[in-house]
Amino acid sequence: MNHMRPSDGLFLLLAYLLLWVVLLCCDATRRSRESEARIALERTIVRSYALTDLCLSGEARYTRHLSQADIHAPFQDHPLALEHFPSGSLIPPPPHLARRTTP
């Protein structure tokens, strides 16, 4: 019968989307194989330069070296100051600062 049912169209669309999902899963395997070598390189660099942080955002000291921020850094001048760097509002203060309150 040449008449296509709407549900056939839906199943085709879902199959198409699932095909994409499968393709992206293949992409994921490929990428995670690639990323092993990259992570090994990153580890070497962290070790040899004694680095402590990821380079996510260089806007401010406490977003560039997140883990090294002292307790006053995330609240630059006042504990209730509004965060003025976009990155700072994405990033919470490091947990060890909240735990240990001595400087």
């Binding site: 990428r31 380079c55 996510l56 955002s57 260089g58 976009p86 990155s87």
Partner: peptide, 17 residues
Amino acid sequence: AFLKGWSTLYPYFRLAP
């Protein structure tokens, strides 16, 4: 765009999926 914010230096990093 968020992480970069006002800094001009932003890493184009790839992440492990």
